[in-house]
Amino acid sequence: MDEVKLFGFWASPFSRRVIWALKLKGVEYEYIEEDLPYNKSDLLLQYNPVHKKIPVLVHGGKPIAESLVILEYIDEVWPHNPLLPKDAYERSVARFWAKFIEEKSHLIAKLYRTDGEEQQEAAKEYFEMLEVLEEHALIRGKKFFGGDEINMVDIAFCSVAHWLRVVEVFAGPKIFEPHKFPRLNSWIQNLKSVPVIKDNLPDTDKMLALLKRWREMLLASKSS
């Protein structure tokens, strides 16, 4: 069997997407932790010379970059426990919502990297995104976005499930309030009850310390 390696960073939701997918599929892999953001390895730069970022999956010596692209690759190479529906229409719906969250993923970073009006605007946009998910993406009575089993959409939305709760500490007013988003709140509880997910989430206190340090450095550099 061809060797599988994953270059990632422990606090990255994009790395966690790939970790969850590999574990849901039962694929054995070697994990290589990158020292981000400033000490990227030569191998990472070699395997992802365009964007120079994690995650990168290396399968049989061939690199695949960008987390959603990696998820589709994993699903095609290891088709058991599928991440995408078999039905063409349902598959297109899943890809739509995965793309939707991907286009909003920059907001998580803006919530802890900025302050003042810029941060408030990011918080407002994130809240509006949650409203869309609550109203249009989740189907009443289903545990996950795809039904009773986790699929690519659930994995793509991992930043809502865990990272937002950490990042919004720096964002002033609370963004996610369970009573305002009952479907999303139920989805988060369902997702975190799955052992593969629950056992592969980064430590909250460690994340808070990291983001606090990064935020202080970023804001200090802006004011200097």
Rank of each mutant, 00 (worst) to 15 (best):
Y126C: 03
V50L: 03
I19Q: 05
M217S: 15
E90A: 15
H179G: 03
K143R: 12
E149I: 06
E3F: 07
K206P: 01
G116A: 02
W214P: 13
S15N: 12
A109C: 09
E117N: 11
L201W: 02
R140F: 11
K62V: 04
L68H: 15
I175L: 03
E216R: 02
V160M: 12
P82C: 03
E30S: 13
A161G: 07
P182E: 04
V27H: 09
I139M: 10
F144S: 09
G26Y: 14
I175E: 14
K99H: 12
N190R: 06
D2C: 14
K180C: 04
V77F: 05
A21D: 14
F145G: 09
E149T: 15
E28V: 00
H136L: 11
H106V: 07
I74K: 05
L218W: 05
F9C: 02
V58L: 09
I139P: 12
R17H: 14
S15H: 10
V93D: 08
S193V: 00
L201E: 09
K174F: 00
R165D: 15
P49R: 02
I32M: 10
V93P: 09
G8M: 00
F7Q: 03
L44C: 02
E66S: 05
S186H: 13
A65M: 06
E34K: 07
F127K: 14
S12I: 11
I139L: 09
S159R: 06
E103I: 01
C158I: 15
H136V: 02
R91K: 15
D199T: 01
F100I: 01
S159P: 08
F181Y: 13
Q119H: 05
P79T: 00
D154Q: 10
H51W: 10
F14M: 13
W163H: 11
S15W: 08
I188W: 13
I155C: 05
G8Y: 07
D115S: 15
I197Y: 05
V169G: 08
D2M: 14
L138K: 12
E33Y: 01
I64D: 04
L191P: 00
P37L: 06
I74Y: 08
V27F: 04
L164C: 09
L71F: 08
E134R: 06
K86N: 12
I108S: 06
P49K: 01
V56G: 01
